[in-house]
Amino acid sequence: MASSLTIAGIDAAYGAVRVIENVSLEVGNGETVALLGTNGNGKSTLMKCVMGIVRPSTGSIVAEIEGVRHDLTGLTTEEIVDLGIALVPEGRRLFPKLTVEENLLLGAFRRTARAQLARNLEICFETFPRLAERRRQLAGSMSGGEQQMLALGRALMLAPKILLVDEPSVGLAPILVSRTIEAINEMKHRYALTVLMAEQNFNQAIRIADRGYVIVHGKIAFEGRSADELNNNDLIKKFYLGL
């Protein structure tokens, strides 16, 4: 069944500081869409808008989950999570004093997610065998790469339809960035996810992205309809890479 995300003309601000201006984007069923931009351009804010953590002042955010349309702007974060939309927060944001297993189980805090708890945990350990080895260890004591795997695994525990990943590469060594990106791609294909990924690391992101948007100062500066279009574009170099 089809799942997609449509953001149309949203504005968002923290107090008087306007962060996002008239942003529209679309993530089609089964797509991986990259949201590219450097620090402070509104990528994370956009993710928070989708999750209902930040409320846009205008515009609409509509998610289609298994063929049913839901207007997210009126829902609470819990309700949005219940629909099957999961966010992997920037900088991993694990529960450091809880064990790996507890972190995963808490990914399924919602009643809807707990229905398939044992099965989802099994799938999670299968996707990330390292987590199974470390299930009794405190999340905060693992390496950065392992923590990122755990953050992804925690989101999987919701059995999401739409996955939002906010800067998976942040704070990781280059080899781990590459592995994390591959893990996201693998998860996507395995669970038929629809993925919106915010990323600064342009070259890594376009390895797995079908399409992409470049966001500059809270506005969509460029829309690339294919990975190639993103890759070989002078505008990108100007806007984003600063060349």
Partner: peptide, 10 residues
């Protein structure tokens, strides 16, 4: 442990 992550987990 992390209030923002708690929110994101529902």
């Amino acid at each position: 442990d992390d209030e923002f992550a708690a929110e994101a987990a529902g």
